[in-house]
């Protein structure tokens, strides 16, 4: 009886007072949505506001354009040569403390932003260093054999050269087109392909935003959403822009599973060029709705300095990472001579 009783008491003590791992003494603080300061002796897990970095740098990706190795044909046509290597074994920290197997073009999600001018001859040397078949399927106009659908490139160093003329003008996605397609896309095999008009566009501070999602537990629902892969990144690393300066965003929606995504800008409206194929804007709005691979070009100028949010107005997406901040600096204090357009 006594034995039974002591076993009972012992077991229940263990159950009632769980064995917390050894305590830390240092007091840390963090601030909530409503500005409340929380103190804790434990770990702070705050991907929203804590300034943290992971392997991939969305700030670098934002304004990085790959123009390729440039050469000229005898007739004066510009030839641009790119090398893209696919891999599928990389485990990347996608949000502080969360590790996910990404499939990459040139080591990043999204892959490099390929940029050319309409009419250029493009030569894309594709190497598949992954363990599965992969391809590159460009949206745009090209011969059937260059479509990256029926020409699967074998794993372990398989090669293929995509050759076609850049066009039409606009912003397009490229992605792997091997079945099961959804798997190859959601793991990260996609990127942006920009075709500039021959006459160019007005000089602007240009950036690329791929709206994407990450299904880290494979339940065909996204656990995270983001502009450029890392959730909340541009919230704790605001994008610095200048007032009275033209901002141009090439935005591409690559979210899977959810039928739509959208882009809302605070304190301003933007001229919107769907798919970027036309040089005249179709809308002047602060809200566009984007279906899968739907994309376009946004142009706007901020008059007043300060902090402005941009985010999905599908609030579920913004509260899972697709939210950022433009920090508008007063241009009278800064030099805006570095603004340029294209190559």
């Amino acid at each position: 009886m006594i034995l039974l009783l002591s076993v009972t008491i012992g077991l229940s003590v263990i159950a009632i007072f769980p064995n917390f791992s050894e305590a830390q003494s240092e007091l840390k603080t963090f601030i909530t949505h409503s500005g409340k300061v929380i103190r804790t002796t434990g770990d702070v897990i705050d991907p929203l506001y804590t300034v943290s970095t992971v392997e991939f740098d969305p700030m670098e990706y934002l304004r990085e354009f790959n123009y390729g190795e440039v050469s000229k044909l005898a007739d004066g046509t510009t030839v641009r040569e790119y090398t893209i290597i696919a891999e599928d074994d990389k485990v990347m920290e996608v949000s502080p403390g969360v590790f996910y197997n990404v499939w990459t073009y040139n080591g990043t999600v999204p892959g490099p932003t390929i940029r050319a001018t309409e009419g250029d001859l493009l030569k894309i040397n594709f190497i598949n260093n992954g363990s599965k078949e992969h391809t590159i399927h460009f949206h745009g106009i090209h011969p059937a054999g260059m479509d990256g659908v029926f020409e699967a490139v074998g794993p372990g160093g398989g090669k293929f050269v995509y050759e076609f003329e850049a066009g039409p003008v606009g912003v397009h996605p490229y992605h792997c087109h091997v079945m099961p397609l959804e798997e190859h896309i959601v793991h990260g095999l996609y990127g942006v392909f920009i075709v500039d008009p021959k006459e160019g566009r007005e000089p602007a501070d240009e950036m690329v935003m791929v709206l994407n999602g990450l299904d880290t537990d494979f339940d065909t629902e996204n656990n995270f959403y983001a502009a450029n892969t890392i959730p909340f990144y541009y919230q704790h690393h605001p994008i610095q822009i200048n007032s009275h300066e033209l901002i141009r965003i090439y935005v591409v929606n690559m979210v899977e599973f959810d039928p739509i995504n959208n882009f809302h800008l605070h304190g301003n409206l933007y001229e919107y060029y769907p798919t970027g194929t036309d040089l005249v804007p179709s809308f002047y709005t602060d809200m566009i709705t984007l279906s899968q691979t739907e994309r376009g070009i946004m142009e706007f100028v901020y008059e007043y300095p300060g902090k402005y949010l941009f985010h999905a107005h599908k609030v579920e997406f913004s509260e899972k990472g697709w939210v950022g901040i433009f920090l508008v600096n007063d241009s009278s204090e800064s030099d805006d001579s570095d603004v340029e357009y294209g190559s």
Partner: peptide, 22 residues
């Protein structure tokens, strides 16, 4: 390692005591 907390599937800042490694 506990990485993220959410309420109604919306990510929230949180504290883990004594620490997130279990």
């Amino acid at each position: 390692q506990i990485a993220i907390a959410d309420v109604n599937d919306r990510i929230q800042p949180a504290a883990v005591e004594p620490d997130g490694f279990l």
